[in-house]
Design a binder for these strands. Structure first.
Lengths: 347, 347
DNA sequence: TTGTACGCGTTATCAA
DNA sequence: TTGATAACGCGTACAA
């Protein structure tokens, strides 16, 4: 195979122009179509020409232009993951798992943070529209059905965690009422009767109220009266919220022997306060969290937690989204993944 | 050119086709150019036409197609952040900060995970080329200068954390030798003499060896002999690595009264082992980590840590990248951000 | 098996 | 101030 280039492109030498299919085609002395076919494998190409094209691609260090390909194919190969805050470990792990799973399916992941701001949640649906991403996996934080329906564009969306009641949209989540009830029941089974709850949030239509319902249901079934003084709302789900909530509980002077936290981060924050007040965990106060983040395994003591099947959440959400991308008319599906209790030393 | 259709609305009205500038232009009875100008503000448009166009946009719920715009403008408005693992809190916080900072500057962030695999690090530079992203912020994990130079494409790159020595590339990082020396010196100032080090990794050209150099330098300056038995390498930087490394140290039976960990996660894992063996922190063993992740504040006890100015890292990296995107010929710049020691209860 | 010509939706250039 | 036209780089229907 002789390497004579008979047609020396002055284009390449004059200015550092972009290398495109045309340049490759010229060098390999074939048509752009053939180059395209070699790359896509879409149509058969003879072995010899294929080799020549491959060589030319290598020679010019050609790589296809994504913008052009996307425009032509009407797909970007990117999905967006919109969530409140990446630095919250539960979401960080979600990003981790999703990036990994998406890569296996030929997608990359764009991360969008709403930081709990309603306008950001709206922007997610508006701003990501039309060709920037092929679909959105959206973990909202208290968006109403009405707003959602009004603002959503044509981009496929899968909702995560928080269901928007009545909305005509694919959804993956867990039975939060049951999870909360199980967590509370676990504490009751450990002999606790004065069980506090940290993490409800007012006004949101999401997981908070559902967990409160589960908590109260478990109490009711055990014949334990509900005591409003044992409940503390938090603004967000960080360590500091848990620490402050626990401090408030203790300062109220209300008797308690266990705490159910709506998030592991809240639980770890709560344990921090308990330790600093000289209370023993679980002897004086048992603590259970939610999410099973890695941090909980190394907390002091290791944190018991109720958690959804996170792998199932990731893969279900992705599969649902890809199905929706392929067929916008597919019937809406709502997936509930199972949850389990990881019993560790904090209870 | 045989069938040159003028303004064939009948074709478009038959099916619910995509809404483009053309549709808007038709409705507003202007040219696509004008619509484009109203959107971009690139050229003056009379108030009346502007209103008509705005109305038509609203009426049709038009939003521009990103793929087309990107192709035309030769930019995507997306930058990639390539790092080992998002679920590692330090990186999660980095993503958080960067997504936020990028948004302020009109960019979105695509997250790419290398998971420590060399081929993934190569893929970052190859796969992200040509129009998919405008630039890459890359936190590598032991890539050689030679490979880097050979594989890098034309996409602007800013390196993070680990410098690739001699490489002709923008870089943001910290003086790891000094940081390690300061951490070790802090322990020495607390009266410790038998100081272990957890987290070196063999073979990589990165932060690990640098921190080891700083550690040994501080010992030397304090006249403390280096004891190889006090050093433990780890495969990665997770909790479990720290826990196992600490266990190994204790099992060696070598006397120690402090540990310097190359990562907060390692330190928290190490403290887990110390607690479970009944050792008191810092009374029996003082512990210092690196990174100042949020988790450290709520560890038991709260973790002393040496940390770079993370906000400076984020903004410097982004500014460097944006500068590089604007001017590929700009002189290479390497930024070192300062570090500080957050003293908490673990020392 | 390969090549030609067109269009994806947008914006920049040139002309009016 | 506005419009017609070309081009960004690619994939594909149609022709050979």
């Amino acid at each position: 195979m002789s390497h004579h280039r008979w047609k020396d492109d002055s284009v390449r030498s004059s200015r550092p122009s972009q290398i495109g299919v045309r340049e490759v085609a010229n060098l390999a002395r074939v048509s752009p179509t053939t180059v395209s076919n070699v790359l896509s494998g879409n149509r058969p190409v003879s072995a010899t020409t294929r080799e020549r094209v491959r060589w030319a691609i290598e020679e010019l260090d050609y790589r296809p232009n994504h913008s052009a390909r996307n425009l032509r194919l009407q797909r970007s190969g990117i999905i967006a993951l919109a969530l409140p805050e990446v630095r919250v470990p539960y979401f960080a792990e979600l990003v981790h798992d999703l990036v990994r799973a998406a890569r296996d399916r030929g997608y990359r992941v764009l991360v969008e943070q709403t930081e709990g701001r309603t306008e950001s949640e709206h922007a997610v649906m508006h701003g990501l529209d039309r060709g920037m991403v092929d679909g959105i996996i959206f973990s909202p934080l208290g968006i109403t059905r009405e707003t959602f329906e009004r603002r959503r564009g044509s981009t496929p969306i899968v909702l995560l965690g928080e269901r928007i009641l009545g909305a005509d949209v694919d959804y993956v989540g867990t039975d939060n009422v049951a999870a909360a009830a199980d967590a509370t029941a676990h504490l009751i089974a450990r002999g606790r009767r004065r069980i506090a709850a940290i993490g409800d949030q007012r006004g949101t239509g999401g997981t908070g109220p559902q967990r409160t319902r589960g908590y109260r249901r478990a109490l009711r079934r055990a014949g334990i009266p509900y005591d409003a003084r044992l409940t503390v709302r938090t603004a967000t789900y960080h360590h500091s919220d848990g620490a402050e909530a626990m401090a408030e509980l203790l300062d109220r002077g209300v008797e308690l022997d266990a705490v159910y936290c709506y998030t592991d981060l809240l639980a770890i924050g709560a344990m921090h306060t308990l330790r600093s007040r000289g209370l023993r965990i679980p002897d004086d106060v048992a603590v259970i969290g939610t999410d099973d983040i890695d941090e909980g395994r190394y907390a002091a003591p290791p944190l018991t937690t109720v958690t959804p099947d996170k792998a199932a959440i990731t893969t279900s959400a992705l599969d649902l989204l890809i199905r929706r991308i392929a067929d916008p008319e597919a019937p809406v599906r709502q997936v509930l993944v199972p949850h389990t209790i990881e019993v560790r030393d904090s209870t």
